[in-house]
Design a binder for these strands. Sequence first.
RNA 1: GGAGAGUUAGCGAAGUGGUCAAACGCAUCUGACUGUAAAUCAGGUCUUUAGGGUUCAAUGGUUCAAAUCCAUUACUCUCCA
Length: 415
Amino acid sequence: MKKKAYDLIKERGYIYQATSETEVEKLINGEPMTFYLGIDPTADSLHIGHFFALTMVRRLQKIGHHPIVLIGGATALIGDPSGRSDMRQMITKEQVIHNKNEVKELVKRFVQTDGDNPAIIVDNADWINPYSYIDFMRDVGKHFNINKMLATDCYKKRLEEGGLTFLEMGYMLMQAYDFDQLNRDYNCVLQVGGSDQWANMIAGSDLARKLDFQNGAKDRDLQAVTCPLLVKADGEKMGKTASGTLWVSRKKTTVYDFYQMFINSYDEDVERLLSFFSDIDMEDIKKMCATDIREAKKTMAFEVTKLVHGEDEAIKVKESSEAIFSGEKTQENAPSVEISYDLLNNDSNGLDVLVSANIITSKSEGRRLIEQNGISMNNEKIINPNFTITENNLTDNAILIQKGKKVFVKIIFNK
RNA sequence: GGAGAGUUAGCGAAGUGGUCAAACGCAUCUGACUGUAAAUCAGGUCUUUAGGGUUCAAUGGUUCAAAUCCAUUACUCUCCA
């Protein structure tokens, strides 16, 4: 017997909270309906958490439901206080416009926006910007009870650890209104999002109900589901790397780093990540993880990379990673940095070169690493902190530097 | 607008005149062991050299000597209006 759509999604671990599980189940198993996911363009790329939520959108789209992706052009200007202990840095309007475009392009890569069942991309600035403050407060603001709002986790944390500004209080109203608006314009009946959005999402369902009551209209029943936050086995949020956030955009995080991040994940996380980011059958996933965890991990990293960066890139990065780590440490496949040729042939230029290539941040750090046997050049450990790189070290104008066990960088000297 | 408290390294948090480049925890990096995993253990985390130089919100002052005392400014929080 074939499993129902909802069960498949639930089995893969996507369902964390739902306003009413039975209602949501009915919606997902039933006739095609319209649902939405909101993303605030607070940066010019998407991080892995956004991407995760988008995979849920993909799955729902695939079984025939109609997705709306809302880019929060208005809400990004306010900043969501959820889960934050400090106020979000305000970003400029120009920045938001720039981010909006970048984010839109990325969303298009993951969610189908043409063909039979295209996703619609909307911007909440379109309806929030024209709304006057007084009207908004009279229409929407009056339905929000501050006591209730303060009881929610997202505001509680801000209250305890810092101060809560009126700006941030307004965020929930806007997101709630978005849901109502999308319901009226597109008959959107379900909102999906990360679990940190829970309070904002149910605020939307509540608002619709209250507005209906006030207008004497029929009760709309807007549902919300959240997916779990993507965390590692140690409870840390996933996607934080040494160099910062793990971005989906190639410009901000190289494909190599992206792949490495997943290859280095904990054994315990592999099954979950596979269930989220691959289409492999759950049974097979379980089997794979039980028999050969390392192979399963490779598959997982490959599948995620394929999804985000395409199959060609994924194959390339998989091959180069395997080449580098299986002892075959050629400079062929390592990620590369280009620096000026002029740095060559000065005495004791080694550390300078490493600093300019951003492999180390300071000369002291370099000295320390060398003392601890942490730096290799062309597969030979460097012992002398005042080492010199000369033309004799180059192969095709490049050298291969290894920092620690896992960081390989090819430095190319440009003439 | 009034009264009070605060601002210390990536984060949390000690330190209230010299022994403070600043305890401790987290985070992070390197090494050992491994499986490019985890756990464990060892060492490191301002910079530059082995001589130092620049840090404790900012600026100015007191002192032989300041994260520590004083003044001004900025920001944050609590209570009152």
